[in-house]
């Protein structure tokens, strides 16, 4: 199979190029894109990419696969390439490239940190756990599972345009994860932090985030909830 990989090493290359590499695939097995990359690295050890869990829970290997963002480790090649066609791997779009498929995620993490992604509750905790009903706990489903792979935010035109001011879908999903948590007592503070023309309201409901989330999460819906809360809080 022909694999075309985005190559860029700032020490030696003036600009990035797409380089083809021929990979022999084992018969009768539908490999994941990450398996193909590992085979490519056996041939050319200089190919750089991130990977860790290889089962879709750590979020390391988000990349652009034949035009769509996804996790290399849980994307079967049959799902993205027709037989006889090229597998095309590029870094996640919209962020500076460090090398090959490795992007600089600093601004993505900065936006995540901005939403104070931790529980705030300054009341003295009980001697056991804080109680929470299954119904209240269910409000966190679809939110806490985010793996910070950045597939969504780097697929979002609003984030491409204002990565420094728009929190982006991943960060906002986590903002809502804490707003929705009945154990958190900082709703007012959290909403005040988000109450500006950019942080939340630059979301145009394009839903590119939903289209690519490898965990099937829905940041657009979470952003909608935040908007409603901001409006209710009389902004």
């Amino acid at each position: 199979m022909l694999v075309s990989i985005y190559r860029y090493n700032p020490e030696t290359d003036l600009k990035p190029v797409m380089k083809d590499i021929e990979i022999d695939l084992p018969e009768g097995k539908d490999l994941m894109v990450l398996d193909v990359l590992e085979l490519a690295k056996q041939k050319d050890s200089s190919v750089a990419y991130r990977r860790s869990c290889r089962e879709g829970v750590c979020g390391s290997d988000g990349m652009n696969i034949n035009g769509t963002n996804g996790l290399a480790c849980i994307t079967p090649i049959s799902q993205v390439v027709k037989p006889g066609k090229k597998l095309v791997l590029r870094p996640l779009p919209g962020l500076p490239v460090i090398r090959d498929l490795v992007v600089d995620l600093s601004i993505f993490y900065k936006q995540f940190e901005k939403v104070k992604p931790f529980l705030i509750n300054d009341t003295t905790p009980p001697a056991i756990e804080r109680l929470q009903s299954p119904e209240d706990r269910a409000k966190l489903d679809g939110l806490y599972e985010c793996i910070l792979c950045a597939c969504c935010s780097t697929n979002c035109p609003s984030f491409w345009w204002n990565p420094d001011k728009f929190i982006g879908p991943a960060g906002l999903l986590q903002a809502y994860r804490f707003l929705a948590d009945t154990r958190d007592t900082a709703d007012a503070e959290r909403l005040a932090d988000l109450d500006d023309p950019f942080s939340v309201f630059r979301c145009r409901g394009i839903m590119n985030c939903v289209a690519v989330c490898p965990k099937g999460l829905n940041p657009t819906r979470a952003i909608g909830h935040i908007r409603s809360m901001l409006i209710q809080h009389g902004t």
């Binding site: 529980l119 056991i128 109680l131 966190l140 948590d181």
Partner: peptide
């Protein structure tokens, strides 16, 4: 474990909220 819960770990819950 209680400290982790106080920190925000989203444990699944029983009907009594534990």
């Amino acid at each position: 474990v209680f400290e982790l819960e106080h920190m925000g770990l989203p444990f699944s819950r029983t009907e009594s909220g534990r």
